[in-house]
C-alpha cells in the first residue's frame, strides 16, 4: 500500500543535475536517473493529492512526507479529517508500520504484495518503492530526441516487478524521468506517469507536479509538492514506531 510514497519520494528527489554523460550507454543513463533521484540526504514536503475517478469525481488528500536516505520514510495524513494522523512508516526490508490514531495503535504490516494500489491512488507499492532501477531493469535506448533519451526498461528475470516493461523519457538536462509508461503483464499500456514543474530546491531538481493515470481504468492521481525542504538532518528517531505515534 505504501510503496507509492516511496516512489513519490524518489521521484521528487531529483536533486542534483548530474554531469551530462556523453556516451549514450542506456545503463549509464538509467544510473544517472537513479543518482539524481537519490541525491538528497533527506527531504520533507507537504503533499496534496487528488484522486480522479472515471466519472470525474475527485477526492482530495493532504499528507506530509518525510524521507531520509533510500530506506526511511514516513507519511502522515493531514486530511481528510477522519484520517488525520494516520501514519505509515516504511523502513528497510519492507518493514512497514501503520499508526491508527482512532485506536491509538501501531500495527506492523508485513506485505509481500507490491502490485496493489496504495490508498486509492494509482501508484502501487512497487511504484513508490522504486529507486533502484538499475538493479531491477535492463534498459535499452529506443530513441534520442533533442530533449530526451527514451529508454525501454525490461524487468530482469529475477526481479519481482509486475510490469512487462517501462518506457521512460529521461530529460537530458535534468536527468529526471519526465514521463514513464507502465505496461501490464500482457504488454498493454496500463499507466502513464508525468512529472512537471521541476524546480531547483536547496540545490536539488524537484518536480512539483506528478500525475499518474491508469489508462485502463480511467483513473488518475495528481500530486503537488509544497514546502519542500532538503537536507535538514532529520534525526533517525523520527523514523521509529514511537515517533510514528506523535503528530
Amino acid at each position: 500500500m505504501f510503496n507509492r510514497l516511496k516512489q513519490l519520494l524518489s521521484c521528487l528527489i531529483l536533486i542534483g543535475s548530474v554531469s551530462v554523460a556523453s556516451a549514450v550507454d542506456p545503463v549509464q543513463i538509467l544510473q544517472s536517473v537513479e543518482d539524481t533521484l537519490n541525491a538528497p540526504e533527506d527531504r520533507e514536503a507537504l503533499l496534496t493529492m487528488q484522486l480522479i475517478d472515471k466519472k470525474g469525481e475527485t477526492k482530495n488528500r493532504e499528507l506530509t512526507l518525510l524521507q531520509k536516505g533510500p530506506d526511511k520514510r514516513l507519511i502522515r495524513f493531514l486530511s481528510p479529517a477522519d484520517v488525520k494522523g494516520v501514519g505509515f512508516l516504511v523502513l528497510e526490508d519492507d518493514m512497514m508500520y501503520l499508526y491508527m490514531p482512532a485506536f491509538a495503535k501501531v500495527r506492523r504490516i508485513a506485505s509481500h504484495v507490491k502490485n496493489e494500489n496504495f490508498m486509492g491512488t494509482d501508484f502501487t507499492y512497487d511504484d513508490m518503492a522504486q529507486n533502484d532501477y538499475v538493479e531491477d531493469y535492463t534498459p535499452t535506448l529506443q530513441e534520442e530526441t533533442d530533449q530526451h533519451y527514451i529508454l525501454e526498461l525490461v524487468p530482469k528475470p529475477d526481479s519481482e516487478i509486475d510490469y512487462s516493461k517501462l518506457v521512460m523519457w529521461v530529460n537530458k538536462e535534468t536527468r529526471l524521468p519526465d514521463k514513464v509508461e507502465f505496461y501490464d503483464r500482457s504488454g498493454r499500456l496500463l499507466k502513464v506517469m508525468t512529472q512537471t514543474d521541476t524546480k531547483r530546491i536547496d540545490g536539488y531538481l524537484t518536480p512539483q507536479h506528478i500525475e499518474m493515470e491508469d489508462v485502463q481504468d480511467n483513473h488518475k492521481t495528481t500530486m503537488d509538492l509544497k514546502n519542500v525542504v532538503h537536507d535538514q538532518n532529520i534525526p533517525d528517531k523520527r523514523f521509529t514506531q514511537r515517533y510514528l505515534k506523535r503528530f
Binding site: D82, V86, L98, F103, N117, F118, M119, G120
Partner: peptide
C-alpha cells in the same frame, strides 16, 4: 464496526482504492 467515524476511516485506509 468501530463506534467512531475515525475508527472506520482508519481501517478504510486499507481498502480504499482496492
Amino acid at each position: 464496526i468501530p463506534d467512531t467515524r475515525e475508527g472506520v476511516a482508519n481501517l478504510w485506509v486499507f481498502i480504499d482504492g482496492n
